[in-house]
Design a protein around this nucleic acid. Structure first.
Lengths: 343, 343
DNA sequence: CATTTTTCTTTACGCGCGTAAATTTTTAAT
DNA sequence: ATTAAAAATTTACGCGCGTAAAGAAAAATG
């Protein structure tokens, strides 16, 4: 790991006693050279500290070994977790990863796509902002780069979509709540940034109707991605103004629920299933922190690992085949009821 | 935005009627060319969809315009927030950003540094894992690449360190707790991954001694970065086994405290300052979620923005001067007591 | 051993851009 | 208008690697 310093592949090749084209071949695929040759190169690699210049490598490739990952809001542990799983899977497949967050900002999302373009990625996994996304710009990007959408669907964009089955999940928790107590009201943002929320709203209305219960949508104001804050502020208002027609609140997502729980706590509303409780609160997503709320949050879980696996697998198959999608496939994973003590 | 497609700077130059070297100069710094020239180039940029190939650009530069950011655990909103602030500042300074998480894993941290090496970054902002980091490897990296450490100090590594004043912060919250009720016990991991914890432990012991109160360290088992889980499981044990010598618990960080609060809730220990409360619980960090615990967590806040600003500013000054640090400067920001209702 | 197949070497070119040097043009100053 | 300074152009080379073609060497086959 010392000796004279190696500056490029030429020098490394002569130091290892192998020709440069063969060394180049080795770095593109170690299995493509003869066993004995590989050993000589790897012996030299241990002796000298050389690694190919990735800029020079990628300059000539039409597409690189880079895969972009874009999430709408990385400070949300939900996306951080999913991104982590995706990263690991991609790296295990021999690709590199570039993780970008749109920070809830449509302009940032476009900047991210722009940056990715200049990186010439082999493919991109995109969880778009949703309502705030610029559909035309995203479409233009998807036309240029093989892109698989996940978590948040924008109709017809990308090669495929992998997400949650919001309908099944909402039905499941609504049925549970109706079966075990008063029917839930639906607590949500009036204009949620993410389209999953719309599907959940719709599913809530449909399943409640099917079950023969009245619906109540509590649509609160608030923009952006500070869901806990919105859930807290508006939860306090809703509780103090006695806007709830039942004692059971189904929040559109766990982060709203986390804020709502705080509101309930501060207004002295005991939350839980017990006789002495004034409210039941449920969420949606099985957010990493939902286990640690007080009381722990009853919610619908989505399998991060499954979504990550399917997304990566789908993208890699497009990359490896070099083909684009004939028809856009949509994969939805069912949610699982996480019964905890909040509802 | 259409016309014949531009393949490289040569073609773009002739399309814009400007020579290639001048165009190159423009892309390196638009202000470095004459006003009229700039306008002609920018007019052409609107007409043709061209952007320089970043691989070709970086191949010839000895150092790129890339700045690496490495955090120990991105799924922790604390780091996600700090990373977000840092990213924005760096981008505003005209650099690019590469955000990497070590996922709590020393091997991943080395992989990240390795990846950054091959990217030839202008500089790196590194929040190391701490105890688990490989000091020799990190040192070797810091020798090669201008690196500023933040959040977590490793003695003498990097050009500078920017972090929290754990001593001042711990003193402040200890004094507050002692003044307003029973003296706190210190709840922490026996072998915390992050050295900040050690400093807080030490500061706790010193300030309690200075104030003339007894100390009690509750050092719980557990490895890794699942702090909430550890705080929850061990908190339950500690409470049920009645290991607390006072009614006040100072947790080494907010994530432990979040788990501890859940443990207190589930064991029926009411937390807060009121007469009817059995426990007071405080944390450290002003974690983004600490406002939304039940009850909201009294803690010590650290100013993300200040730390981000100072870190970026420090790194950029090294990059721009092209010099390395004469003497390693350490900047510690004071914490601010966030009085909420948990203690 | 001769023959075929596989692998490696040699030679050579190109990718898209940075950048230096010498020259010409444009602008600013006198 | 003359001169000096600033900016653009032309020309040319190099960065580190991918990759193609032709020939030489090694390995596998019979």
């Amino acid at each position: 790991m010392n000796d004279p310093k190696i500056r490029n592949m030429e020098e490394f090749a002569s130091a290892s006693g192998i020709s440069r084209p063969t060394v180049s071949k080795y770095f593109n695929d170690p299995q493509s050279v003869r066993e004995s040759t590989r050993q000589r190169i790897e012996a030299a690699l241990e002796q000298y500290d050389y690694r190919p210049n990735i800029y020079a490598i990628n300059q000539n490739r039409r597409l690189t070994k880079n895969i972009g990952i874009v999430v709408p809001y990385l400070a949300d542990p939900f996306f951080a977790e999913i991104a982590r799983n995706i990263e690991n899977l991609i790296i295990a497949s021999g690709f590199r990863t570039i993780l970008l967050s749109s920070h809830g900002d449509p302009k940032q999302e476009l900047d991210n796509l722009d940056l990715l373009r200049s990186i010439k990625p082999a493919g991109v996994l995109l969880a778009p902002l949703g309502r705030a996304s610029d559909p035309a710009a995203v479409k233009a990007f998807c036309d240029d780069v093989p892109t698989v959408l996940f978590d948040c669907n924008i109709s017809d964009l990308g090669e495929a979509f992998i997400g949650h089955n919001n309908v099944q999940a909402t039905e499941q928790i609504c049925e549970y709540l109706c079966r075990t107590g008063e029917p839930p009201v639906f607590f949500e943002m009036r204009t949620p940034p993410n389209p999953n929320a719309y599907r959940r709203r719709k599913a809530y209305c449909e399943v409640m109707e099917k079950l023969g219960f009245p619906t109540q949508l509590i649509q609160v104001d608030g923009e952006g991605w500070n869901f806990e804050e919105i859930g807290y502020v508006e939860g306090k208002r809703v509780i103090s103004q006695r806007l709830l027609t039942t004692n059971t609140v189904l929040c559109s997502n766990d982060r709203l629920a986390i804020g709502f729980l705080t509101a309930a706590f501060e207004t002295g509303q005991r939350v839980g299933r017990g006789e002495d409780c004034a409210l039941r609160v449920a969420g949606h997503d099985n957010h990493p922190y939902s286990r640690f709320t007080c009381p722990p949050l009853t919610t619908i879980s989505h399998d991060y690992v499954l979504i990550a696996e399917k997304s990566v697998e789908t993208l890699l198959s497009f990359i490896e085949s070099g083909e684009r999608a004939q028809s856009r496939e949509t994969t939805l994973f069912d949610g699982k009821l996480m019964m905890r003590s909040s509802a």
